[in-house]
Design a binder for these strands. Structure first.
Lengths: 233, 233
DNA sequence: CGCTTCTTTGAATTTCGTCAAAAGGCGTGG
DNA sequence: CCACGCCTTTTGACGAAATTCAAAGAAGCG
């Protein structure tokens, strides 16, 4: 990672929050942002922190996870380059509802509430983008809730991998590789099961040739097969 | 229910989507809405229907439920008077992601996408309201996903009743009564369990004096006790 | 090389879903 | 008003899926 970090309109151009924004808009947005470099493993904000900001991952990846009062963890989402996070808090109670932790070395930009509202007012497209993004995430979360309620652990893990492949996959000769490094615990926490169950199922799939796993990089070798596991009724 | 139904700005004033709107704004909104009377049990829209509209329940109650490809049902939410529903679809793919069914005789108002966008443009507060509402619902759905992943069926049912009490409860001498009529299946589908488990748990609670149940009207007799059940670790 | 972190595997336990059957409520129509 | 049928709820028995606990093995890192 370079040690210098300066406001860069260019690196915001691929952020979904700024989809359709003009170069001049991006420049203004970049200028009012706070830019940060976050090393792997470092927490960006904590569940319950006040004065929430709107964040965008410029490079890297972030895990958004919620911890219940009993200590149980659930991963709500992995955020990849170009995606926003933490933004909903601005419009609710200004308290982050979850933890955000960098899972690789990451660069993020973030805006104070006032600055984001200013941007939205001047460039309404940004507000529309925000509603659309939140809408999609609500639908996705509803789907996940349905799966948690009705599908088996194996099906949920399959579905989680398929989603991750779509979100952050890269095609390789061996199949679709999920770029984010995932531990068994991450996979368990995103599919709502335990580390042990996730381990058992993944080693089963590895044996069956559905996936391969080297150094926390998962590759979906047989997408159709995985899809079938996810959808079997 | 009266047989006449006309645009009524007054009845929109308590809708959260129009919070803070002036009388003149409400008048314009009421005029561009389509008003409908929906008898108990009638479906308002189906999962997958195109050309989604933005809806508000003026009186009554609506169940929002999703059906998976395997036929399994999950209730996403019950909508009470004053709440909006179906609106997220406008900002995503214009297809309703769930079914909406009246669970009592209901009056609803709804807007075409173009009309809502026009309202939002003219009265930005409405757009802000929409983001806030969707934001809250996303957070609520994240909480539910966490509970589905980490809490027992009993705890989830307790939590669901507490939520329903907050959302649509009325204080009575016997405790907080949930105004919406709920079948055991509704309770099961909202807490992600089966009809049978829900029945067992509720009869247990009735015996223990935590709740009473007459004709599908549930009353939370011992709120603290229920809370304890929900939170026990 | 040693320590920590992560992963695998096994065995026992438990929760909860599934299936079956009966009982209760409610409205309709005779 | 009663009888019938439908929908809903209750209850029991069983089984399967997944968690829990324990322990050992592998992999990464300083």
């Amino acid at each position: 990672m370079p040690t210098e970090l300066s406001a860069s309109p260019q690196s915001l151009s691929s952020a979904d929050l700024f989809a359709g924004a003009s170069a001049s808009t991006l420049k203004i947005a970049a200028a009012s942002a706070r830019w940060r470099r976050v090393p792997n493993g470092k927490r960006i904000f904590r569940q319950g922190d006040e004065d929430a900001r709107a964040h965008v991952v410029v490079a890297g990846g972030v895990r958004i996870s919620q911890t219940g009062s009993d200590g149980a963890q659930v991963v709500m989402r992995f955020i990849c380059a170009g995606e926003m996070f933490g933004t909903v808090a601005l419009f609710t109670d200004r308290k982050y509802p979850a933890d955000a932790t960098a899972i690789v070395d990451t660069i993020e930009a973030s805006w104070r509430e006032a600055d984001l509202l200013d941007l939205m007012t001047r460039f309404p497209q940004i507000a529309i983008n925000a509603i659309r993004i939140v809408g999609w995430r609500l639908q996705e979360m509803q789907n996940r809730a349905r799966e948690l309620a009705t599908r088996s652990a194996e099906q949920r893990i399959a579905q989680a991998l398929i989603r991750l492949g779509q979100q952050s996959g890269r095609s390789t000769p061996a199949g679709t590789t999920i770029l984010l490094p995932l531990r068994r615990k991450d996979i368990a926490d995103i599919s709502g099961t335990t580390l042990f169950t996730a381990s058992r199922i993944l080693t089963g799939w590895a044996r069956a040739g559905l996936v391969t796993d080297q150094r926390r990089r998962l590759t979906i070798a047989d997408h159709a097969g995985l899809q079938q596991v996810a959808e079997q009724s």
